[in-house]
Structure formats: structure tokens, C-alpha cells
Computed example of a mutant assay.
Amino acid sequence: MRFPFTARQTRPALMIFLCAVFQPLWAAEPQSAAPAQKSLPNRLNLSEWEVPWRGRPRDPYVGADGDIWFCGQSGNYLGRFGPKSGIFKKFKLPEGAHPHSLVVDVKNRVWYAGNRSAHIGRLDPDTGKIKQFKLPAELRDPHTLVFNKVGNIWFTAQNSNRIGLLDTKTGKVLSVAPATAGARPYGIKLDAEERPWVALFGTNKLAHIDPETMALREVELPRADARPRRLEIDRSGNVWYVDYAEGYLGRYVPTTGAFTEWRLPGESPRPYGTALDDHGRLWIADTGVIPNRILGFDTATEKFFSASPVPSGGNIRYMYFDPKGGSFWFGVDSGFLAQGQPRK
């Protein structure tokens, strides 16, 4: 069932209470919506669909056929949603997989990170069959996945403190560890040169890897207490990251080594999921308030220009921009799949 919402609509108090209870224990207690939110216009159309099954829907990906795939992390399933039909379909995974992230290949096969069972799986939606690629012992918790141009998969393993590369044809796996202990590799993106860039959530650093040699270089952020969680790379090769701990958006220019940072508006912002659209606008989920809000930032004017409350409550951990549809998709911990359509 589809639920279009506006900025004036809210969820019941019970939903807000439950979302607050299930915040990560180490996170700061959510604050009330900041006054700064009211000073920014809402330039985003939001639509939400309640997922029929429990399980923390997250990390959506748009397949070539337009269907939306997502992980049911705590429910141990993959879900498929048809935006036109409104129909959901559930695919059960091997016991204990607890998928964290997924990507869809050109053959419409779905690859997922078996976060608690040390494997990357491949689902054939036509048959329902799953092939598991078991990972080496040092890669016990595959986290976030991204394809390179030849269809192999780079991935982070947060608590293993490693970044891996899976050859999807042979199953061979290479990996490398940051020099910093407990760096917690988290968000990952590839630049135009096929280099993986990684947000090291356990420290104040980014990292990038030479895909030919697997040599890893760390880049220290300007503030010692910064904790980058997700990142995006624009057409000029600039790396945009969000600092979850102190509420900043940052830009790193690899060619010059220059940093620029902007603090998010609000009293206690906690930026998490991000999406970069095809007009150079960054969309950032602020989880420091319940309900979460999505902020828009124009990378050309270097200003925040939009704030949109997400009525369903719960945290937004990851967002995916679909260039064909001109919109981005995300899951909400409270049990919803959602689409953000920027207004012209």
C-alpha cells in the first residue's frame, strides 16, 4: 500500500517511542527537531510503502527492470518491490545470513552481504536458487558492496577491519587492512579510475586503494573527533563524506589535498545515509532527530537548500540514487521502503 506524505504529517507517538528504543546503544539520544529545519523549504516529494514483513528493510538497489530490491536484515530475507504494481515479494535466505547490503548485476541476479555468516550470496530471482561464496576467516562480516566495471565486487568488513574484492566468476577473494587498528571500514564508493574510497568509521580517516596493487592509503580528516560513515564521489572526483559523530558534511579534493566542511543545520545532527543525484545535489539523512529528516545540499552553491521530515520514523542508514528514475530510494528501520523525488 502506498502512503504519500507531506511535511505536515506525523506518525503516532508510539512509533516515535519504538524508534527511539531501537537506536544503537552507543548513539547519542535523539534530540527534538531543530528550529533550523523550519527555515529551509521542503523541496522533496516523499512516498512510503509499508513492508509486509518485519526485519529492518534497508540498502535498496534498483534493478534493470525497475524493481526495487532491499535487505530485510533482522528478518533474514531479500525483498523485491514493484513500484508500478505495488507488489512485494520475499526471498528467504540461508539461516543466519542477516543481509546487510546488496547489488544487482546486468543479468538481474542479486548479490548480498551475508553479514553474520561470512559469505556473499547470489540469488537467481527466476529460480530462487542461491549460490554462496564463502569468505576467508579474516573477512567474517561483509558489510557494504559495490561493483567495479567488470562485475567484481569490492566490499567492506567493518569489524574485521578489512576491505575485500570478490572475483564473481572464480570466487577468489583478495583483501587489505587499514594501518589503523579498529578503523572499521564502512561506506565504500569507486571513483572514475576504479579506485575504492572507504569511510573509516572507527577513526577520523578516509582510505583509498590501488586496484592493481591493493596498496591502501589513509587520508586524515581535519578534526580528530570526526567519524566518517558514508561517502559519495562527484563527477570531478571530489569525495564527499558525512561525519556522524560531530554532524558535518565534508569535501576532500584528492588532486590538491584540500578539505572544506559544513556543519549540518540543527542542534545535534547525525548524518548517516547519503545520495548524490545527477544535478550535483547531495541528499543526507539526519538521524539526530526522530522522525529523521532528509537535508538537501547543493554542491555548486555550497548551501543547504531543503529539509524534509520522514513521517514513518526510524533511522535511514543508506540511500541509492536511480539515474533512470531521477529519484533515490531508502529503507526506514520502522518498516518502510521509501522514494525521494527532488522537486524541479
Rank of each mutant, 00 (worst) to 15 (best):
F3K: 11
P12E: 05
L25D: 13
A28L: 12
S39E: 14
L46E: 03
V51M: 04
W53F: 10
Q73V: 10
Q73Y: 02
G79L: 00
R80F: 05
F81L: 03
S85M: 07
G86P: 08
F88N: 10
K92L: 06
S101G: 05
R109F: 15
A118F: 04
F133C: 13
A137S: 08
L139H: 02
R140D: 09
L145S: 00
V146G: 09
N148H: 09
A157K: 03
I163G: 04
T168F: 14
L174D: 13
A181E: 14
L190Q: 02
D191T: 07
P196S: 14
V198T: 01
T203D: 04
A207R: 09
A207L: 10
M214R: 07
M214Q: 13
A215R: 09
R227M: 05
R230P: 06
E232R: 08
I233H: 01
G250W: 01
T255D: 09
G257L: 10
R263A: 03
S268V: 11
P271S: 00
Y272N: 14
A275C: 12
T287M: 14
I290M: 13
N292Q: 12
E302N: 15
K303G: 08
S308Y: 04
S308R: 13
S312Y: 06
D322W: 02
P323G: 13
K324M: 14
G325E: 07
G325R: 12
F330L: 08
F336W: 11
Q339G: 07
